[in-house]
Every structure is written in structure tokens, then in C-alpha cells.
Design a protein around this nucleic acid. Structure first.
Lengths: 130, 130
DNA sequence: CTGTATCCTATATGATACTG
DNA sequence: CAGTATCATATAGGATACAG
């Protein structure tokens, strides 16, 4: 069956798997926070759960935890627990995660250069239909 | 309210909007088809609806049409109708769409280089939990 | 050939309450 | 502080039937 073959192709395609990995609502933001620091312009550094929670003001606890876990699972960040009272947990980019963060700078550059054009086209298209 | 401000930030962030634009299940595949041709290695060229439908064997008519329309709306592809009987419709990358396709080559390169590491880590993580 | 219209399901995300 | 558990909702995606 064609569909089965194609789904197999999709499952095997590295680009497709990368898109699935980075397309979550909070993935890019967490990588950006850990890669650029809270001011979005500094050096990579570890951040605590509460610090991330405050920086990404719109994130729910569920999604923050879930996204952090999945990034840890994929070896993109590390999770470090210090047994203070109360407990202290910090997250930091791995080498692999840093490499992903760096790659996404290219994506960011394209976005900054061209997304305005995209949205201009979108508005024009909608006006033409109306 | 923090959340409102953060959502406003999200809505304004070009990188985030770009990820929303390219993260659809069929977006990258359609761009790739129009940018590389059916053999995924050639030159950019126009393709007909039925040709895309055959190449992307897993896509439903609904999703193919919907994705093509949204890409046209954003000025990434053009839709050309020739009034034969029955009608002939072809799609082609615009300059902007071609530029996006080119940018995604960098993403593809990262994926080909590093996604195996990611999945190796993932398996190791799952085994450690079990 | 190139779609539209309708219904249906799966998944992602979010809100809220509770805990070591 | 750093989560977990549960419930609710929105949206993406797909199956199927029909049409110019």
C-alpha cells in the first residue's frame, strides 16, 4: 500500500523528525532561554525551574515540566537536582542542545528578514477574497 | 497580567511565527517537492495537484488543498489554473518560497547530522527508566 | 482533474487542585 | 520549590461522499 510506504518514509525522514522535535509551543523558547539567558542576548547558562517558569510567563506547569522532560530525554538538556530544602533543580543545554540552539539562529535570521513579507502577503490575499 | 504580555510577545516573535508556518505535517514536504522536484534532487519546477497528490502518497485531499491554499495565501507558492477540460492546476514556488526552501536546507543538514544522536539518547533514557 | 462539505478522532495544550 | 494528577478544550488531521 502506498500510504504505508509513505508513512514509513515520513517516520524515517530526519528533517521531518527534527520538525516534530522543535515544533512544540515551548521548545524554541526554552532552548532560547537556556541558550541566551533571560535577557535573550547573553551567554548560555543553567536556569532553575522557577526561573524558567517566570521567564516564560504564559507556560503552564504541566507543559513546562513535560517539555523539559522530553528535551532531557533527547539529550538536549541536563536536569540537575540539589538536595537542599526545599529542593533545587536546574536545567542546562548539553553540547547537542547548544548545537541545535545555534542551528536555530539561521532560522531566526530568515524569520526576521522575511516573515513581514509573509504577513503582508497574507493580508493582501484576505483582502482580495473579500 | 504577565500571561497577556507574554502571549503578545509570542504573537510578535518572528521565529515563533516561522515555526508555526513550517510545522504543519505537509508543509515541508510540499516545499521540498516544488523545490527539488519529484526525485528530491533536481531543480525547482511547477507541479500539478494530482502530481503532488501522487508523490505525497499519505496526504488526504483535504490536507493537500488546505496546505496549498495556506502557502499561496502567504505568498510562498503560486496557483495557476488553465481552463482545459478537465481543468489543469499547477503550483510553483515564488521567490519567497524558494528562499524559505533554501533556508530549510540548513535545517535538513542539522537533522541528517544529529537526529540519530537524539534518538540514541531517547532510547537510552527509556531503558534507564525501565 | 481538482477540488468542497461533513463528520469523526487523536493529540496538544491548558486550568485547577494537590504533594513531598 | 518543583513538581504530579485529573479534567476540560481546542485544533490538526483524516475518512468519506459528493461536485463543477
Amino acid at each position: 500500500m502506498d500510504k504505508a510506504e509513505y508513512n514509513a518514509f515520513l517516520s524515517a525522514c530526519p528533517s521531518h523528525k527534527l520538525l516534530e522535535r522543535i515544533s512544540g509551543k515551548w521548545v524554541a523558547l526554552i532552548l532560547s532561554a537556556l541558550g541566551s539567558g533571560p535577557d535573550c542576548a547573553g551567554q548560555p547558562r543553567a536556569m532553575r525551574y522557577s526561573e524558567l517558569s517566570r521567564l516564560l510567563a504564559g507556560v503552564s506547569q504541566k507543559m513546562l515540566t513535560q517539555t523539559l522532560r522530553s528535551l532531557e530525554r533527547d539529550g538536549l538538556i541536563t536536569r540537575t537536582v540539589v538536595a537542599t530544602v526545599p529542593v533545587t533543580v536546574s536545567y542546562e543545554l548539553t553540547e547537542l542542545g547548544l548545537s541545535l540552539f545555534t542551528m536555530m539562529r539561521g532560522l531566526k535570521l530568515w524569520a526576521q528578514t522575511h516573515m513581514d513579507d509573509v504577513f503582508t502577503n497574507r493580508v493582501a490575499y484576505d483582502n482580495a477574497s473579500a
